[in-house]
Design a protein around this nucleic acid. Structure first.
Lengths: 250, 250
DNA sequence: GTCGATTACTTGTGTATACAACTCTAATAC
DNA sequence: GTATTAGAGTTGTATACACAAGTAATCGAC
């Protein structure tokens, strides 16, 4: 009975990423603290700098670490939990997590809407507001909101920076539908959210309707994957819909 | 009055990614079809192969393309929408999207639970089932389910491959709480889901409780970001909770 | 016809090198 | 004291080259 010995190549950047992940998770580098430089790690692990970078980029994609050109690589922080259907604002959630919320309008423009937005709002002429939400001075969410220009013409830039849209709009609301997806940050998003291009983000699209069932607001929210997560309660079915309710588990 | 001309460096791999994204989205390369090889693109854009790869990896991180060693780069497919709180199974959603669902148990073991799972289930002795859900023969979700060994001892591996847990467990269910986050695929997940390490995934954790409020099942679901997205309806508040209800918009 | 080996081509990992862009500190000028 | 600049060090982009690992087509043997 003979067995064959197979020589399996080890991928260096995986090994290094595993080692560094282990160090970060064991607390060897405190949150916000610098890791050794790429040159130091290259020397420590006896590999080229490209290999070190590949390992570090894996960890960045996992949200464990982040980097700034010229500054170095450092440990990233912890996510905020946002309940779905719990009817709380982003700012409320930040405060609940002990953070200081802040919002800045980046863009405020009346323009032609993208096709899907125009279709939802029933008009091409819209007010678009691009806003960044900060938590403790760090980017937390990048939000784009569209409403019909007819409604938006009464709103000032200072208004929408200070006050949520729903308080500014004189419309009874019925509810909203939101989609949640994972995606990689685009160049623009990465710039605003201070994450690398390609980093995992939660991409949410929300359509808010008035009491008449017509769309009042369309908004897109982008959250860095390492900064937040959603929580949803899936209640069991009432006896009247028992067959569907039983499906909630699998 | 003088103005200063600033020479701004253009990042080549960004430009190339933009061009290739445009081609993919305009339908120049049909779904599943090969893109030109890295060598061809390197020649076409007059850049090194590393620069081409960097551009292609950006597109892969966006879920637009994928690659297989030796085969080439090809266009990836479209996401499935999964409603939250709509009480449908993964398989139901696939069928609704015209896909053929399939499930395979990868691991079925009685073992000591990870600490958080043990705490939730109130025992260290658990049955752990690792399962892959396929849609049209392509990996769609990687699912790990834990239940107490006391309950799991009556279940066979064939049972859990064929039938959802909730139909196998003789327990009245109260509901579930699920978290949703964006993350980068680990090495193991990437292998099973046939995505590159670091690709964006939706990472869901679910705790299912019985009628007595005690945890019956703990499960983790990992979906490739480009394969699915969640939908949630955020109903407006009833008059009795109007202040909260108004917050759902912002 | 089938099967295995070979070949050409593909993507994946890795080294070495160079330069761009950025950060921080120390030195210098006012 | 403050403001500016230089220098050392950092990460980010890019080239050239090499080899590993994988795929598909072709060729030869049976």
């Amino acid at each position: 009975m003979y067995t064959t010995l197979i020589q399996v190549r080890t991928i260096r950047y995986h090994r290094i990423a595993d080692e560094l992940r282990s160090r970060v998770q064991s607390g060897a580098y405190a949150s916000g603290r610098l890791l050794p430089s790429e040159a130091e790690l290259s020397s420590e692990f006896s590999v080229s700098r490209v290999t070190v970078r590949k390992a570090l980029e894996m960890l960045r994609d996992e949200g464990l670490v982040d980097s700034r050109q010229g500054f170095g690589w450092f440990v990233a922080g912890d996510p905020v939990r946002q309940p779905l259907g719990r009817l709380a604002t982003i700012e409320d959630q930040m405060r609940a997590s002990g953070m200081t919320p802040e919002r800045h309008v980046l863009e405020f423009a009346f323009e032609k809407a993208p096709r899907d937005v125009a279709r939802a709002l029933g008009t091409q002429n819209v007010l678009r507001v691009l806003r960044i939400n900060l938590a403790d001075n760090e980017p937390f969410a990048l939000v784009t909101v569209w409403c019909a220009a007819e409604r938006g013409q009464h709103l000032s830039r200072a208004d929408v920076e200070r006050t949520p849209f729903y308080e500014l709009l004189d419309v009874p609301l019925q509810g909203a539908t939101q989609t949640i997806a994972a995606d990689a940050a685009t160049k623009t998003e990465a710039l605003h959210l201070n994450v690398p291009e390609g980093a995992p983000v939660l991409r949410c699209r929300r359509v808010t309707t008035g009491a008449d069932g017509k769309t009042v607001l369309v908004s897109h929210h982008v959250f860095p994957g390492h900064r937040t997560e959603f929580v949803v309660d899936l209640p069991s079915a009432e006896p009247s819909i028992a067959p569907s309710g039983l499906r909630l588990v699998e």
